[in-house]
Write a protein that binds this DNA or RNA. Structure first.
Lengths: 243, 243
DNA sequence: TGTACATCAGTGAACGCGCGTTCACTGATGTAC
DNA sequence: TGTACATCAGTGAACGCGCGTTCACTGATGTAC
């Protein structure tokens, strides 16, 4: 809400009441998208689910496109903020690389499944909205950079001529596969368990990147991993920095 | 046209003239899907592009849903038939595994890009049409089986506890990543060249599966690879067996 | 604190547009004798 | 081969429905004095 460029997509609320309405509309939109896809997400349905009205919707957004753009941009911001927190080297002090990878990937499986409605909508809109592709590209680049930094901070070596490019490809592979899985899933549970998928993707990273970690110093203060940060639920903005 | 279950989605044409109209409608539908996605693919637009009329459309299909189901099923059949031909061990006699992989993956990049409209539509419809997910699952299983058979026929070893599962995962990764790339691309050219992508995916397969091929027998009749089979353009059915 | 007024927020019926679908009709093809 | 009829194929205007969007109106909140 504080970033000024968002004024393009949403009419800034002036009172607490309308801010709440806005949040409810956003939550409802994501819920409806997850259940019925873009086709089931009519403005009246979104308003109904939010316990609001069509008029209230248009008091907040210039048009339906505005809602979608706002949701996409918010997703991008939340994803990046979460990645920054999750990939901070300090968070994984004393945790073996493979375990760290698995924990992160398991988390990613859940997030992408939760956001499958939004992801599906983004995929649908991508051919028409080239800016969306750029958004995805930017996020991919940002996450890859963070992963590379994390690996370097741990002193892990990547057995590839161009580690940066290889990491980028690995991130792309993981996102592509999980996005396909999440969007294709619908409500049905896929055949492989989420844990198995996370473990396999960790295996993929280790093998594809040729990851080797230096022997850990046998410190006695090895802490167990702290629980991973969850992305903010859509009722709050996630622009604050990681602590 | 010969498989009887298709009668559900399409009204079998009786004359050559109407068969041609049907083909033109199908081609137009794919073209329109590729350009404007599901949203741009109205019945009147499809008919217009086919140089036909709305009435002619409904003479062939019960409804719009019928067209989509037919296209999806035809894609599935063509994909499977192409996979059978492309993954036949004899085709790759004397070709090193890595080169074979790269050639096949390069081909896959092109096909998925060509079919990006249809793939996008399938992704959009998947949450609503659970049958589509099953279709994808079946194809994934079938292709994985063929890949595994090809590897075995060549005497290549897979350094994984459960080779079948690992191959399946690899196929899933490749499809997911390429589908994301193709659908997200729209008309813009992605940053990495198609050749680079194919090479990287080959690297992925070799490393992730721990592929090792036995030294080739130094036969003098080592033939160069025959050109890969192209999938049939939509003006012909692809139910014939590989020669 | 109380009152008057301006602005913000929300409501839901109404409108117009584009879509999927139908249908009365015309033209082309095949068949019987 | 020619003619009469039946069926197949195609046309495009018309219909109805649901969608996105607007707007006249009511209610809530904030502010000036």
């Amino acid at each position: 809400m504080t970033s000024p460029h968002k004024l393009e997509w949403v009419r800034t609320p002036q009172q607490a009441r309308s801010r709440e309405t806005l949040e409810r509309l956003l939550d409802a939109a994501e819920a409806v998208l997850a259940e019925g896809g873009l086709e089931g997400a009519s403005v009246s349905e979104i308003a109904r689910r939010a316990g609001s009205s069509v008029g209230a919707f248009y008091a907040r957004f210039h048009d339906k496109e505005g809602l979608l753009r706002y949701l996409f941009e918010r997703f991008d911001e939340q994803a990046e903020a979460t990645a920054v927190v999750a990939l901070e080297p300090a968070r994984w002090d004393g945790v073996p690389l493979r375990e760290a990878l698995e924990t992160m990937l398991r988390f990613l499986v859940d997030v992408l499944h939760e956001k499958r409605g939004l992801l599906g909508a983004m995929l649908t809109r991508m051919p028409t909205l080239p800016a969306l592709g750029l958004l995805g590209d930017r996020l991919l680049g940002r996450v890859s950079g963070l992963v590379l930094a994390l690996l370097r901070a741990r002193g892990a070596t990547v057995d590839r001529p161009d580690p940066a490019a290889a990491v980028r490809t690995a991130v792309w592979l993981v996102f592509g596969a999980l996005e396909l899985r999440a969007v294709a899933a619908g409500h049905a549970k896929p055949r492989e368990s989420d844990d198995d998928v996370a473990a396999e993707l960790a295996e993929l990273c280790v093998r594809y990147l040729g990851l080797v970690e230096p022997k850990p110093a046998k410190r006695s203060d090895r802490r167990p991993p702290r629980p991973k940060a969850r992305p903010r639920t859509s009722t709050r903005q996630t622009t604050e920095q990681p602590s």
